[in-house]
Simulated assay, not measured.
Amino acid sequence: MVMTSSSVQTAAGFVYDQLRKKIFEKALVSGQRLPEVAIAKELQVSRTPVREALRRLENEGLVQIIPGWGACLASPTRQEIIDTYEVREELEIMAIRKAAKHITPLQLCRLQEQIDAEHETFVNRNLESYLTVNDNFHIIIAESSGNNTLVGYIKNILSRTFVQMIFFESFFDFDTNPSLEEHIIILEALKNHDEAESVRLIREHLRLSMEGLKTK
C-alpha cells in the first residue's frame, strides 16, 4: 500500500501524540533512546511517520536526534538547569520591577485566572496543562512590564525550563501544589505595587522551583 502525503501526516500526528503523551505521563525517561523501528512496530505504522514525529518533538526541545545514532529524549544536565535558572531569575526580576509599577487591573485579573486554573490542573494531575498555566502566569507578569523585548526573552527562557520541568518536575509527589501559594502572594505584592516585595518573592519562588526539580 502506497501512503499519500496526507496519510503520512495523519500517521505522523498519531505517533507524535502517542509519544508526547508518554513523555508527559513519565512513561519515558530523560535520555531514553527512541528507536524508529521499535516505535513503528509498536504503533503499527511505517518508519516515515515516526521520523516526522521525532523531528517535530526535536523542534520542541523534547527529543535529540544524533546523526548516525538515532533519537533519544532530551537529557538536560544539572548544570544546564542551574545556568538556565540563573538567566531566568535576572530576566524575571527585571520584568517584575517594571510590572509592580505599571500592572493594570485587567492584568491582575488575568493573573488571578491563571491561579484558579493552576489549582484545577493540579487537582486533575495534568502535567502539560499545569506547566502551561504556570508559564502563562510568568508571561503575564512579563507583559505587564511594558517591555516587549523583555517579554520575548522571557518566553524563550520559559521554553527551556518547560522542557526541563517535563522531565524533572516532582509536583506529582505532593498532595498540595507547592507553587500555588507562592503565586498567590506574588499577586498580592503586585496588587500593592510593592516593588521590593515582588522582587524578593519572585527570586525566592524561582529558587524553590529550581531546587524542586529532581535531577541526578
Score class of each variant (00 low, 15 high):
residue 67 P to C: 14
residue 203 R to V: 15
residue 76 P to I: 02
residue 108 L to Q: 11
residue 98 K to M: 13
residue 117 A to W: 05
residue 187 L to F: 06
residue 153 Y to N: 05
residue 80 E to H: 03
residue 10 T to H: 04
residue 14 F to V: 03
residue 213 L to M: 02
residue 84 T to C: 13
residue 123 V to W: 07
residue 189 A to W: 01
residue 111 L to K: 09
residue 146 G to D: 05
residue 160 R to I: 08
residue 102 H to L: 14
residue 13 G to I: 04
residue 110 R to F: 14
residue 59 N to C: 04
residue 123 V to A: 07
residue 21 K to F: 02
residue 128 E to V: 07
residue 78 R to G: 13
residue 198 S to N: 04
residue 189 A to Y: 02
residue 124 N to G: 03
residue 149 T to I: 12
residue 165 M to K: 09
residue 49 P to A: 11
residue 24 F to W: 14
residue 183 H to C: 04
residue 83 D to L: 12
residue 212 G to D: 00
residue 15 V to C: 01
residue 139 I to A: 07
residue 125 R to K: 08
residue 105 P to H: 05
residue 138 H to T: 13
residue 61 G to S: 02
residue 143 E to Y: 10
residue 96 I to R: 11
residue 139 I to V: 15
residue 96 I to H: 10
residue 59 N to I: 04
residue 134 N to E: 12
residue 112 Q to N: 09
residue 116 D to C: 08
residue 13 G to K: 06
residue 48 T to Q: 08
residue 69 W to T: 15
residue 168 F to H: 06
residue 126 N to I: 00
residue 138 H to I: 15
residue 100 A to E: 03
residue 167 F to T: 00
residue 210 M to T: 00
residue 102 H to Q: 13
residue 105 P to R: 07
residue 64 Q to F: 09
residue 42 E to C: 05
residue 165 M to H: 05
residue 141 I to L: 08
residue 199 V to C: 02
residue 53 A to W: 07
residue 125 R to S: 04
residue 38 A to V: 14
residue 79 Q to M: 10
residue 82 I to Y: 14
residue 25 E to I: 01
residue 153 Y to G: 00
residue 122 F to T: 01
residue 92 E to R: 11
residue 102 H to E: 12
residue 140 I to F: 10
residue 162 F to E: 06
residue 22 K to S: 14
residue 119 H to D: 10
residue 28 L to I: 11
residue 65 I to E: 08
residue 145 S to P: 12
residue 89 E to K: 14
residue 24 F to E: 11
residue 185 I to C: 04
residue 131 L to F: 11
residue 59 N to R: 08
residue 173 D to E: 15
residue 119 H to T: 12
residue 190 L to S: 02
residue 194 D to E: 00
residue 194 D to H: 01
residue 154 I to L: 06
residue 215 T to V: 12
residue 155 K to Y: 04
residue 117 A to V: 04
residue 160 R to G: 04
residue 162 F to Y: 10
residue 88 R to S: 12
residue 94 M to Y: 06
residue 25 E to F: 03
residue 12 A to S: 12
residue 158 L to I: 07
residue 136 N to R: 15
residue 101 K to A: 12
residue 66 I to S: 13
residue 136 N to H: 14
residue 117 A to H: 07
residue 93 I to P: 08
residue 147 N to R: 13
residue 190 L to V: 03
residue 123 V to Y: 06
residue 20 R to M: 03
residue 211 E to W: 00
residue 83 D to W: 08
residue 149 T to R: 10
residue 12 A to D: 06
residue 157 I to Q: 08
residue 37 V to K: 15
residue 50 V to F: 01
residue 10 T to W: 03
residue 177 N to W: 03
residue 22 K to W: 11
residue 118 E to P: 04
residue 166 I to R: 00
residue 120 E to Q: 11
residue 169 E to W: 09
residue 126 N to W: 01
residue 68 G to I: 09
residue 41 K to F: 10
residue 25 E to M: 05
residue 73 L to Y: 07
residue 34 L to I: 03
residue 165 M to E: 05
residue 37 V to A: 15
residue 57 L to G: 02
residue 209 S to F: 02
residue 190 L to F: 01
residue 155 K to D: 02
residue 120 E to H: 09
residue 56 R to W: 03
residue 115 I to Q: 02
residue 188 E to D: 10
residue 22 K to P: 06
residue 98 K to G: 09
residue 74 A to M: 12
residue 76 P to H: 02
residue 84 T to D: 14
residue 133 V to K: 11
residue 104 T to H: 07
residue 45 V to L: 02
residue 39 I to E: 01
residue 182 E to I: 05
residue 97 R to I: 08
residue 75 S to R: 12
residue 22 K to F: 09
residue 78 R to W: 14
